[in-house]
Write a protein that binds this DNA or RNA. Structure first.
Length: 565
DNA sequence: AGTTTCGGCGCC
DNA sequence: AAAGGGCGCCGAAACT
């Protein structure tokens, strides 16, 4: 039996709270108390708190040492419900939802704030953002009814609950921070880049490589300026369209080797170098801001510090506290396993029902044991590859796993035609800007050159033809159903793991799509490993119902993140 | 001078 | 021959 309450920080300080009945309606009077954290702390039997915004409320509770078991985030649910209803783009604030309910003018959403090192959430929201609790509860009641009208109400309820749980996890991770040894980081930087020179210019190794590049071209070239590099190659009689590594590496010229090395180290220097360390690491912790549900597919994003792009070499600096360990757990072949679960392809489910290497099993069945080919084919199918080996091998994949390929093909077609595409739990793919109007090329998508690929007119319809934009939408939708359903599952995994860790000293400190890091006392590591396995099983059952698909993890108990693989 | 876009690459 | 999805971040370039 859940004991559900709602709260709303009140304008002018204090908090309004109310108990809710099983129907979600207030089961008693709205109370006013002076202290948010005190109001929650004094009601430990509450199993779910309903509030407007986890990002607003929960950091304040955590700062006061108060954790909650579950929550329901009204503005997050509003976003998911609007998407599900095909109403992407409508303002998603609680105030906007109330206005739609009451028929008043709908206020636009406030602009997002930018990320800054060490930025704190504002203590108080701007005027008009927080609603009186009675109004908030009217929005909540209407959301309950909208869940009932969803394509699959049970899944939709699970989705909003799961994402609310993800927001609790994110807030707790933001508070914990990732253990980070600045001294180790500096050693790594020194080893890779050499000494820093006074004045903040390039470190020694980069300066040397820039000299080598210049020597190879016979003139001064700045390797960090693509235009300069392209010009230098042209003067050497070599035409390159860009300085991307894959293109440069196919060129035979003595500048290539130092240039590629320069670009690799330059990247470390600008993105994860000394200034990054200065900006983002404090008191032994790297503190990015995790945002659950920050992308349309449901994957998380981080604000600040590039926390989801930490280069492998830099992971040496992620070191557990003395006497503690990092349990690093990585889901094995998550996306094809998710494809098996959502498509219910018999062959793929059978393969994904084993904990052994899925790509090896696929290759045994369809690619004469060539694992690399099998992996390319599977990823090509999921990403909508249109050329190369992936495409060639798609036919073999289709023969052996027809329902799996048909599932993503159907999603791609739906995306091209502008129909709604959903993840397993009901997160809905936004229509691309300009959908339904393919004569306008929107920014960010590849431009179609009519001279190269003349578009057929209405009279000369070509099977499979779609405009560049429609094809891009198709690839997006194709990937969306897999990546997004994987994110659905991962949220439930996190929620389950969080509940187990709540009874231990263990803390979740990092999450990256299919990988989670738990920081725990050495003696808890075994229990954490077991908890991850159990959480994965529970997440699979909750998300996909009865399914033979397994979600094994590769788990390592280490002192240093870099030793996990 | 301040803001936005681009090119490139890191991660999954 | 074609060039797969999702992100964030940085400096430089391009804009206002």
């Amino acid at each position: 039996m859940t004991d559900r309450w709602a709260l709303a920080p009140a304008e002018g300080g204090g908090v309004e709270i109310a108990a809710l009945g099983p129907d979600g309606l207030p089961a008693g009077p709205v109370l006013r108390e002076p202290d948010l954290a005190g109001a929650v702390r004094s009601r430990p039997d509450v199993t779910r708190w309903v509030w407007r915004s986890t990002a607003e409320v929960y950091p304040r509770l955590l700062a006061a040492g108060v954790r909650v078991e579950r929550c329901y985030d009204i503005e997050d649910a509003e976003t998911l419900l609007l998407g599900h209803e095909g109403r992407y783009g409508e303002p998603r604030s609680a105030a906007a939802a109330l206005a739609r309910l009451r028929g008043g003018p709908v206020p636009p959403d406030p602009p997002q704030r930018a990320a800054e090192p060490g930025a704190q959430s504002p203590l108080f929201e701007p005027e008009g953002v927080n609603l009186p609790l009675a109004d908030l509860l009217a929005v909540y009641a209407e959301q309950q009814r909208r869940h009932e009208r969803a394509e699959y109400p049970d899944r939709m309820r699970l989705l909003t609950a799961a994402e609310s749980a993800g927001m609790l996890v994110a807030a707790e991770m933001n508070r914990a921070g990732l253990p980070w040894r600045a001294d180790v980081h500096r050693e790594v930087l020194h080893g890779l880049l050499g000494e820093r020179y006074a004045g903040g210019g390039e470190p020694r190794r980069l300066a040397e490589l820039a000299d080598e590049v210049s020597d190879a071209f016979g003139r001064r070239v700045r390797p960090d300026l693509p235009a300069d590099v392209i010009k230098a190659f042209a003067q050497a009689g070599i035409k390159v369209k860009s300085t991307r590594r894959w293109e440069i590496e196919s060129v035979d010229h003595p500048a290539v080797k130092p240039l590629v090395e320069y670009k690799k180290l330059y990247r470390i220097w600008v993105a994860h170098g000394w200034s990054w360390l200065q900006d983002w690491v404090r008191e032994g912790r790297f503190r990015p801001e995790f945002l659950a549900g920050g992308t349309v597919t449901g994957r998380w994003v981080t604000n600040g510090g590039g926390a989801l792009q930490i280069p492998k070499v830099i992971r040496r600096a992620v070191v557990a506290d003395p006497g503690w360990r990092l349990v690093v757990a990585d889901a094995d072949q998550m996306e094809p396993r998710v494809l098996a679960a959502i498509s219910r392809d018999l062959g793929l489910m059978e393969v994904a029902g084993r904990e052994t290497d899925l790509y090896q099993s696929v290759s045994d069945r369809a690619f004469a044991g060539d694992r690399a080919q099998a992996k390319l084919a599977v990823l090509g199918a999921v990403y909508g590859q249109t050329s190369g080996d992936g495409l060639k091998n798609l036919a073999a994949l289709r023969r052996r796993f027809p329902k799996a390929v048909a599932y993503v093909d159907d999603a791609a077609r739906a995306g091209e035609e502008g129909r709604l595409v959903r993840t397993w739990l009901g997160r809905t793919c936004p229509p691309a800007a300009g959908a339904g109007d393919d004569t306008v090329e929107e920014a960010g998508l590849p431009q179609e050159d009519p001279a190269d690929s003349p578009a057929p007119g209405p009279q000369e319809w070509v099977p499979g033809y779609a405009s560049t934009n429609a094809r891009a939408r198709g690839r997006f939708a194709r990937n969306f159903v897999v990546q997004g359903s994987a994110a659905d599952w991962a949220l439930l995994l996190l929620a389950a793991l969080r509940r187990t860790c709540a009874d231990m000293a263990a803390e979740l400190v990092f999450f990256q799509h299919d990988e989670v890091i738990v920081h725990c006392p050495e003696e808890e590591a075994g229990a954490v490993v077991a908890a991850i396995r159990e959480a994965a099983d529970l997440a699979a059952r909750l998300t996909f119902g009865q399914t033979p698909v397994r979600f094994p993890f590769t788990t390592a108990v280490v002192e240093c993140y870099a030793d996990a693989k």
